[in-house]
Design a protein around this nucleic acid. Structure first.
Lengths: 195, 195
DNA sequence: TTACTTTTGTACTGATTAATACAAAAAAAT
DNA sequence: ATTTTTTTGTATTAATCAGTACAAAAGTAA
């Protein structure tokens, strides 16, 4: 059908990835469309032609962040080896090893705080993310209980709920405080209550 | 000294309390100074004369929210009776009982996500709040361990860290999802790993 | 009442915002 | 090369923003 004129000079995913970074460092309201143009390398025309509006680009960014993130986290939880190592890896995920880099926090959590109340798209994606993550955590803990690595005394549902919540707490507390000692207490404490 | 002219027609704390509500429902960037005037009942002149700028009013709101909140939470943790009841009360704090009202989330957590990276005041107050809360939780758990209510096998530091983090996770997850069943799993799971 | 001080609301300013209009450029197809 | 289609950057628009200026109002003190 398409008579195919000049082809695009950019990959959509690359632009969205760049947008994710902008929204993650600045939040939705704080970053301007100019910031988005500069960081993505697109001119205004291209950006609006390709994505329609700031908010639509934001939705794409949220979706992509969600999809890439949930996949990475599930992968961590499904690694072979002791379940304890999987859970520790997840807790330590996105906590920079060297104490230099700054952690910018989770885009979805920040989006939920900033916009979930007024933005149905944010709410929907956040819910979906939490839901999938809880399932993946549940499976990992269940696996641990089946192999005997984790006691069967406490229910899988409750252990998964506790772990999920503590994980999210860490992902709020650490980026804001950059307190490594506290992060260690949280991580060790969370694991020690399960194992 | 002061020749004392016309007295103010408003109480500072009442205005700040109103501002807390505005910032809590809208976030810093999303609410306008007009919104603040309308919700506080002050005219622009009065508001700027009394508080200087939007950001200064925001600081006052954060401080007040912090102070009122930390006091309430400490009070809950220091109630007499089983420590388990105290910890449950804290977890259930600000989770509306009737399933009607909407929960607007914690102003400090949202502020940390939206602004901690660019706003030293936010970062400082958030750190302070977390620090005081961890201490209060630590004391409660220690008390439980001294009375034998909580096992001494796990260290107080780690239990407190885990509980703090799970509590914060809940305060992120619940307002964004309004999922009561999940909240129950989290609360029960968190308590069951301690007791 | 008079003098003085502070509050209060309105009108305004300059800056910035998201979004649009549009012409020039660039590639593909014929 | 010419036509066609799309991209791309610039200029622009209308709205909104935080903050200011200022005169009128309203209280206190004498």
């Amino acid at each position: 059908m398409s008579k195919s004129g000049r082809p695009r000079e950019f990959k959509d995913t690359a632009v969205i990835d760049a947008a994710v970074e902008v929204f993650r460092t600045n939040g939705y309201e704080t970053c301007s469309t100019d910031d988005l143009c500069k960081q993505t390398g697109l001119g205004r025309g291209s950006l609006y032609n390709a994505f329609g509006s700031k908010h639509e680009l934001y939705e794409h960014a949220l979706r992509r962040y969600h999809e890439v993130g949930i996949q990475a986290q599930i992968e961590i939880l499904e690694q072979e080896g002791p379940v304890k190592d999987c859970l520790r890896s997840l807790l330590e995920w996105e906590i920079p090893k060297g104490e230099e880099a700054d952690s910018r926090g989770c885009l979805l959590i920040n989006a939920a705080g900033e916009r979930a109340k007024n933005d149905p798209v944010v709410e929907k994606i956040f819910k979906q993310h939490v839901d999938l993550l809880e399932q993946a955590i549940w499976k990992a803990i269940r696996r641990g209980q089946e192999t005997g690595e984790i006691s069967n005394v406490k229910s899988t549902d409750e252990l998964a709920g506790m772990f999920l919540s503590s994980y999210y707490g860490l992902r709020v507390i650490f980026p804001a405080t950059m307190n490594y000692a506290l992060a260690e207490r949280i991580i060790d404490g969370t694991l020690d209550t399960i194992f």
